[in-house]
Design a protein around this nucleic acid. Sequence first.
DNA 1: ATTGCATAGTAAAGAAAGTGACTATGGGCC
DNA 2: GGCCCATAGTCACTTTCTTTACTATGCAAT
Lengths: 185, 185
Amino acid sequence: MALRNALLAALADRESSGYDLAKKFRSSVANFWTATPQQLYRELEKMEAEGLLSARLVKQDKRPDKRLFSVTGEGRAALLAFSRRSPKPTTVRDELLVQVEALAHGDVASVRASIVEHREASRSRLKGYEQRLRDILGDRTDDEFLATGNRLGPYLTLQRGISFERENIAWAELALGVLARRYPL
Amino acid sequence: MALRNALLAALADRESSGYDLAKKFRSSVANFWTATPQQLYRELEKMEAEGLLSARLVKQDKRPDKRLFSVTGEGRAALLAFSRRSPKPTTVRDELLVQVEALAHGDVASVRASIVEHREASRSRLKGYEQRLRDILGDRTDDEFLATGNRLGPYLTLQRGISFERENIAWAELALGVLARRYPL
DNA sequence: ATTGCATAGTAAAGAAAGTGACTATGGGCC
DNA sequence: GGCCCATAGTCACTTTCTTTACTATGCAAT
């Protein structure tokens, strides 16, 4: 009931295929909503059946045909209605932090390795977000963009993604420092 | 397959009832893992059936009887095995950010109100975490605690919760500032 | 006297999500 | 020629989660 809205939000800007959306969910939407490609394809079918989306088949020469989805009037109405509802509280699922919580009952060396992995993944996502931010800004400063730009929503969610990843990295450094001190190699 | 580990982590420290766990998941574990009471009761049953937990009935005078769960040897082994697995990537579900992403297609006044609500909820959780941190530290400084304390895991996850909520608040301020500028009341 | 809150749970349907395998085309690499 | 990668999906199965609605007890406030 909520993935739909993330899809409507993504499709409201541009017509896309399931494949395009899967990439977008992997690279940027994952910041605030995660979904697997299978989920997307399933949900897109349902939404088309319910009249929120319309689809058109595009034949391609050099690659497989694709279906491009776009938001219908009904879909736009649903998105507007969603924007008026009070959003559910954020939910987080972070297995690494479960491991850290149980540090005293687990394998410290292994958890330490997981923290390092996690930090590297955050660094890599952070780079992607920063690149994307530069793309949105173009040659404008943040301030010029905020005064006149027309992709405020994506700008704001991107900022949240950036600060989240920065905090992930800072936290990982803290945790590794603590572990180095208490559990020397 | 993963909620169990969060439960094992919570129970490894102290024997608890389902009700206790529900409170803990609401107030602190929610930082890195969310679960409803119904999920917990169901999972606890399964885990007891599989031998990861043992339960004992405690009769109470002034309130309903309760069942206290504790981790068995098998449960400890499962937790150790979990700590050695590579954790799945963090997943986030944040409806507010979906609304913000679709700002241009939604009701800005309503989204603004949601951001304010969200900020207040973060402030309140932040206060709770800071209190909990003071409880863990007692009269020690962070540094003394890190040198000798014995609840390092909870300390670290709490730090992550605190920085997360601080960033939520800072982001909300940013977003409200941007909206005030672009969509004056 | 009743309402509301905290404690302590249970039941069961239905929606959503995750997992793994599979089909197909074309391009580039070695 | 064989292999992997990117594109563009589909299918089936299973697990997990959410939602809604229940049962009970005792305390405190109005």
